[in-house]
Amino acid sequence: MYLHSRRILFQKGISALCLTLFSRRLLAENVQHSDLFTTLHTVQHDLYAETDTMPSHEAINALVYLKNVLKQPRVAKAHKRFIVNGVQWLNEASIARYKKHYTKLAAPQRNIVLQTIVQEQWGKQWIETLLTYIYEAMLGDPVYGGNRNEVGWKWLHHTPGKPRPTKALV
């Protein structure tokens, strides 16, 4: 674990480079607040498949978790901007192909849009970012609003470390 920081540094270095580039590309000030979260909610459902053997979307509570992330001071402003900007770019890609916003598309069409943007560097980074927060919601301590009844931990037979937090620290 001594070199854990070395691994993390390497990963963060790549991510941060992308975020720095993309967050400067555009400020998505014209993304409406309600549209923003409706779109993020839809994308989260498209990136995570609910099945009988998997934790439910309701139990993961990923949208509420993501809203909290966007308020956390320990998440860089550029990173937050990137998440918001990505919604606008996603809709641009959606309109370019289907002349409709992402949330107005049928599931197969949305998947094609995702498959399209993942070919671009920003798109791959954006989808990975949203995936990361879905899995943080599912596998973080329930004090952060996700992982209700520890469904994520049970799914992966995970024994959490003790003591566990009694309140959210970030």
């Binding site: 943080e136 596998l139 973080g140 301590d141 959490p160 470390g161 003591p163 566990r164 937090p165 620290l169």
Partner: peptide
């Protein structure tokens, strides 16, 4: 003060 809070 120490917990095994992966998020934080």
């Amino acid at each position: 003060d120490f917990t095994k809070d992966e998020i934080a």
